[in-house]
Design a protein around this nucleic acid. Structure first.
Lengths: 149, 149
DNA sequence: GTGCTTGCAAACGTTTTGCAGACTC
DNA sequence: GAGTCTGCAAAACGTTTGCAAGCAC
């Protein structure tokens, strides 16, 4: 367990918590779902479905990609998992409780998480002016970073 | 030619201008490229490669989809065409000179163009605080619109 | 036992690539 | 004629769906 992950543990449910939530909704606490949750816990960064299915490149047992997608969707519907999109490439999944906004550089691909709240006045300004409440945690704020400008 | 298109004509090069630019770079002014440019002129809104290849649903001759993608890339590299992405669905292409930023609702899919400059102070605020210069004309500013909030 | 869930395979929508023949300069 | 470009086909990519067998409750 990495430092980064430990730092988020307080707000992130445990694997057993998540499985209990599934049961409470009449869903099954299957071994595939346990493995998926354990894999998300083991990853200390947002991961693609592909990398989850590959067991984080072999560190954990591999699983079926279609089932991973189905279960990620189920867990997301229950609020246990979240995903967001980078400029290119597959969607990235994280355990809920790790709520951040992201800034992405479209040239070099750098992805920079910022603490929730850091973009609040940007959000408010857009809301007041245009009647749209931005969500930078699903599609990142895309632009050019300092190095690429 | 629609009103919306006419309104943009001043800043948009003509088909022949664009073909001349191609020639000046040692590239060919082929009939496929002429048709592509004419199709973009005829469209009064951003269009997908698929719809371009279909001749705007039959109003114009159809063309090969792979060539459309190749030529859109060529024209974009020359600065004659731009594309951006919606939340879901294919990339959308417009003639250069029609530069706008976009706000998109992730729930209902509404896409709202805003005039260039309207988001300048949002851009400046993000740049000052985070060292990222946002470009809302490639990936739109995504969030929830008034109706969906 | 009921019925949710799995793993496999096949399809999906969008975009890219390989290639032989055709066209532009 | 040299070299770019086309159209067709096939593949690539990320994701979704159909289905029969398997597992949790």
């Amino acid at each position: 367990m990495t430092v980064a992950h430990t730092g988020l543990a307080l707000s992130t449910p445990t694997v057993d918590d998540a499985l209990a939530t599934l049961r409470s909704k009449g869903l099954r606490a299957s071994s595939a779902r346990r493995l998926l949750l354990e894999t998300l816990f083991a990853a200390d960064e947002p991961v693609s479905a592909e990398r989850i299915a590959a067991g984080l490149d072999g560190r954990l047992p591999r699983s079926d990609l279609a089932s991973v997608y189905r279960n990620l969707e189920t867990l997301e519907r229950l609020g246990l998992v979240r995903h967001f999109h980078l400029v290119h490439g597959p969607g990235l999944y994280v355990l809920a409780g790790n709520e951040r906004d992201y800034l992405a550089c479209e040239r070099c691909g750098a992805l920079r998480p910022v603490m929730p709240g850091a973009l609040d006045d940007v959000r408010d300004a857009v809301w007041k002016r245009f009647g749209l409440r931005p969500r930078f945690n699903h599609y990142p704020l895309v632009g050019l970073c300092e190095d690429c400008t």
